[in-house]
Structure formats: C-alpha cells, structure tokens
C-alpha cells in the first residue's frame, strides 16, 4: 500500500479525541505585507493545528512564499497578527526568534544545501551549531538514521554538486528533519522534479510527517503533491485566500480560479 493511501486510512481510523489536533500552532489574522511598489499579502487569516498538513495552492507571485517567510520571521508583516506556538513573531528579539526557529523546519525550493560541504557535513551543521551537540557518536548516529530515512545513506560522503535534483531535495529534507522540528514549512517541494520523483518526495513528506508528528505548511502548485499530502487546502489568489477545504471538497468548487487548478488534473 502506498504511503498516501495509508495516510488516508489512518486519517479515517484516528478518533477525534485521540488527536491533539485542536491545539493551534500557527495563528494568522488579517496579515498584510507589501513591498515598495506592490501589496503582496492583503488579508491572510488561517490557523494551523498540531499534526495537520495544510497545503497552500496558488499561482506564482500570489504571496505563498511571503506567507511562510513571515511565519519564520524572515519578513515582518506590515499589519495583522501572527503567532507561532502562542508567541508573536514580529515582537521576538534575535535570541527568542532563534529559539523559535529551532522548532520550525524550512525546506527551500532549491534544497539550499551548503555546497562547500558534503552531505554528512550538511547534516552535522544544525546538530553542532543549533543543537550544540558535541558527542560525535551521537551525531553520527542521528545523521545516519535520518539519511537512512530518506533513502540516501549511500550518498553520505558526496558533495551536493554530485546529487540529482530529487536527491538534493531529500538531503534538504533530512537536514531540516534532523533537529526534529515541530512545524515544517515546505516551499514548493516538488518544483523542477519529474512526476515520479515528485510523487516520491510527496510520499516522503507524508512519511516523515507521520514519523516525527510534525505540523506542516506545504506551498505548491503541484496538484498531485497537494492530493497526497493535504489534510486541508487553502487556495491563494492576489494576496488572499479565496477557498478552503479538503482536496475532495475543493474538487467540487464552483470558483473559477479553484477549478482552473483542478482541471489540470485529468
């Protein structure tokens, strides 16, 4: 059985009270963000619950990446309320923001691997610099475990330049997961990959989410990725959400923009 199907099965089996999913880990209300000549986020409101996979769908340039950059404190919203684990991100000082970021994993579109380091060094970096681990045995164990989890133990001593696009994404995912974050933010995790590798990455996201019990925000315009990973889908257009629901619910939507996404999937 494929991981995606298993996930759907699991979702049906878990009783509501067994889930700790009512706890809101990210809360955004009336979020606005503009740059010099353009207003990117107009009015963003959403809650992400613990253990939930939330997919944000939308065309390029609609503000999806800006939304998750605000969550992680890379950008400051111009207006609105944004809390992560109850803390107002915009009001945190450097040290508080650093502590918050340890709980949030961010997978960049390109993987953003440190290209002067081997895969092993890439994975050791957050362990030694963020978690401040000194025990080399413990470090090796965690590196090998997480690499094994993404099926790339053989590539441990390779440089990023020796890896394919899909492998880079997997290593990027492993590097993010190694610190066991509570929230994962994925910026177009399947962009630039072939359909088979895209599906593998989507299933890997799901597998890791179940293994590490993370809450995730997944930004994508890959419908297959959304179908596999999403508990809930939000559709963004022109800096605001225009539709919300499960993948199946949105498939039946009358909204023209929402339909244009689903019509791609034959």
């Amino acid at each position: 059985m494929k991981a995606a199907d298993q996930h759907n099965e699991t979702k049906k089996q878990i009783p509501a009270k067994a889930k700790k999913q009512d706890e809101v880990v990210i809360h955004a209300k009336g979020l606005k963000k503009g740059f010099v000549d353009k207003e990117v986020l107009r009015d963003i409101t959403f809650d992400l619950k613990r253990g939930e996979n939330m997919v944000i769908l939308g065309k390029s340039g609609q503000g999806k990446s800006v939304t998750i950059q605000c969550i992680v404190g890379m950008l400051k919203p111009n207006a609105g309320e944004l809390t992560v684990f109850g803390e107002k991100v915009a009001e945190l000082n450097d040290e508080e923001l650093k502590q918050l970021r340890i709980k949030i994993g961010f997978l960049f579109q390109s993987g953003a691997l440190y290209d002067s380091m081997t895969v092993r060094e890439n994975l050791e970096f957050p362990l030694t610099r963020v978690l401040k681990l000194n025990d080399q045995q413990e470090i090796d164990k965690r590196v090998e475990e997480v690499l094994d989890g993404v099926g790339l133990l053989d590539a441990i001593d390779k440089l990023p330049s020796d890896l394919s696009g899909g492998m880079r994404k997997r290593v990027g995912l492993a590097r993010t997961m190694i610190v066991k974050p509570e929230i994962m933010l994925y910026d177009e995790p399947t962009t630039g990959l072939d359909p088979i590798t895209s599906r593998e990455i989507s299933e890997l996201i799901l597998h890791l989410q179940e293994k590490y019990k993370t809450s995730s925000v997944i930004i994508t315009h890959d419908m297959e990725c959304a179908r596999i990973t999403a508990d809930r889908v939000l559709v963004m257009d022109n800096g605001e959400f225009i539709a919300e629901g499960s993948f199946k619910e949105l498939q039946k939507s009358d909204n023209k923009i929402v339909r244009s996404f689903f019509n791609q999937e034959i």
Binding site: V72, G73, M74, K98, Q99, R101, I102, I104, F106, F108, Q109, S110, A112, L113, Y114, D115, F125, P126, R129, V130, R175, T176, V179
Partner: peptide, 10 residues
Amino acid sequence: EQIDAMEVSG
C-alpha cells in the same frame, strides 16, 4: 538561499 537556510535553521 544557503544563507537564508542557515538563518532560518537557528
């Protein structure tokens, strides 16, 4: 985005 990756990792 390597510098951003370092920054957001803490």
